[in-house]
Nucleic acid binder design. Structure first.
Lengths: 343, 343
DNA sequence: GGCATGAATGTGACCGGTCACACAAGGCGC
DNA sequence: GCGCCTTGTGTGACCGGTCACATTCATGCC
């Protein structure tokens, strides 16, 4: 037992080696499961490891071997439900593979700031996962030096990350398509769209899925209302739409926006779903408990995070590459907030 | 310029040294800002660093010096608003101090699992911040070996972490006290309480603040309803309370519970705040947009995260210890969900 | 002029692992 | 009995930094 009071440094493989009466290399072989170690020796070493409470120093391992068993996740926000869930999924998979997970928050989309953040992440060693649902993330993905192992989490393969980098994606286009079709099938003449900030200059996947559904149904295409990420933005957009009596169905870029829109409609005295139907995006945990409960499209963010890690893991270990670009299939969840239009 | 196509390893201080015509030690001195380097030499070295694109290898630094400039945050959940905000605050402060941030999720409160997670975090090197608002977190904090630098984020100093470890806290007791007093001052005979899972076997700070306010007002003390963290738990608890016509005011352990309670009251046909008043805890972003908007107590989670990091930073760098146990002061936010009781 | 002093720089060991290679002992074929 | 391959183990260098100490040279003081 540790009798001396002062903090001693943790045992190294050389300490274990002396305790077991072998060379440090043999200890290294044992902890790496190398086959050519005599059973008796192996047991002695294991006993010594156990007795001294030896744990392999991750830093030294990383330095000596070059492999660091670490992932850094670059994300614009940890508070948003979707992002947090992806992170949770990554962490879960990483834990199972005994990888360490680091995070870097992209506070601004400013190029210098993004580059700095990417550099910091690169300094941490190991692989990178970039959540590229927004301008900051897209910028970060583009700023990652070519030689770094990275996986992008993107909203659509229509605008894949530069280079032939692996990515995972949610089929946002399909999801928006489904939600829009649902609203149209209830009899609405058209569906208005409150958009989250676009990740690129071009049209987002959600927007284009919505557009396609309208086009197929021959419905007029109103101008999408550009908004922010949070309920405040949804509220502002909702107030605007509420003034137009022709608006009977609104699709929102995410559930937080939908929440703001619901509240705005309430403030404007328009009933949901009696006068106006609302649908969201993500199926955040609170959406099932709002009044009215929110029709939305469920996306498996946690699973997405797990795939992202699995993909990166494959790249890092050069093991058999898994299915190249895993996709998570969206699922429409119909609740109280959508119904037929008023007569 | 890098003419060869194959990936070369990044330049080390020895590469810089040769390029600048000095020894590696001099390079080390320059990057560490050591005073006794001739101005001319320093400039030559800096030029070489710049030209080669040298970046100091964090792994080697950690191994050689023992200091790792890294924090690992142990938390039960990254999805919950409060937890995510604390994490965001920590990351923000860490970034400013150029520390790396790692995360470990405590998926179960099972002792073996928690210990394993703590060990993993310890292996990462650097300091630890444990969010101990729940049994898993409390267990983790207790399982951290004494020699490891750690800061706990706790709900109350009444049950401080074992050992004389630094901690930061939200004054949950005061917050619950304020919210309860607010409801009583509106004229309610008493206030019912829907509790989040307790972090310890003993009474939580929120519970005791609520209790104290009741006692001071001479109001009867109903049995608290034990619930979970999410809206589903709140919904179940709400349905139970809705059956009792004597219930006119409900305080909830967090805003998610409150959301479930609001919905349950709606399902039971009881109006808010007409028949029943509801108050939450945390001021999550959606609370201001619910219908009715939610009266709650705002806690500065981001600031709390920043203080936690600052405290740990002080410990790690042995710099002048900051105020030992920073507290974040709660702020009552009165919205639509609370009002006078029915006559 | 001799010598202590300090500024500027270099040398070797070290952190805790891995990797490439050397080496001894035992089993097998011829 | 010799060589050869396999099994089991040890030695030295290395990863990219830091640290403690040595060295050189110019300066100041008596």
């Amino acid at each position: 037992m540790n009798v001396t009071g002062h903090t001693r440094r943790p045992p190294s493989i050389r300490d274990v080696a002396t305790a077991a009466g072998v060379s440090y290399q043999t200890v290294s072989r044992v902890i790496n499961g190398h086959p050519s170690v005599k059973q008796a020796t192996r047991e002695r070493v294991l006993a010594a490891i156990d007795e001294l409470g030896f744990r392999r120093n991750a830093t030294a391992l990383a330095l000596a071997s070059g492999r660091s068993r670490a992932v850094t996740v670059l994300t614009a926000n940890t508070t948003h439900y979707g992002y947090a869930s992806i992170l949770q999924g990554i962490e879960e998979a990483a834990r199972a593979a005994s990888y360490a997970v680091g995070i870097g928050v992209l506070e601004s989309a400013d190029e210098a700031a993004v580059t700095a953040e990417v550099r910091r992440a690169a300094d941490a060693g190991g692989g990178l996962i970039v959540i590229a649902y927004d301008p900051a993330g897209v910028g970060a993905l583009a700023a990652v030096p070519a030689e770094l192992p990275v996986v992008g989490v993107v909203e659509t393969p229509a605008s894949p990350p530069p280079g032939d980098r692996p990515w995972v994606w949610t089929d946002d286009r399909e999801a928006a398509y489904q939600a829009t079709r649902h609203l149209l099938s209830l009899g609405h003449a058209t569906v208005h769209y409150v958009a989250i900030p676009s990740s690129t200059r071009r049209t987002s996947a959600r927007t284009s899925g919505w557009r396609q559904a309208l086009k197929e149904a021959g419905a007029p295409e109103p101008r999408p209302v550009q908004s922010s990420w949070g309920p405040a933005g949804g509220h502002a957009a909702g107030l605007r739409l509420a003034r137009d009596p022709a608006v009977t169905a609104i699709l929102c870029g995410n559930d937080d926006l939908a929440l703001g829109v619901l509240r705005a409609l309430h403030d404007a005295g328009r009933s949901v779903p009696g006068e106006v139907s609302v649908a969201g995006f993500d199926d955040a945990p609170h959406s099932a408990y709002l009044t009215p409960t929110l029709t939305t499209v469920r996306l498996d963010f946690t699973g997405l995070g797990r795939s992202a890690f699995a993909l990166l893991h494959g790249v890092l270990e050069q093991s058999a590459q898994i299915a190249p670009h895993p996709v998570s299939v969206p699922e429409l969840v119909v609740r109280e907030s959508s119904g037929p239009p008023p007569d």
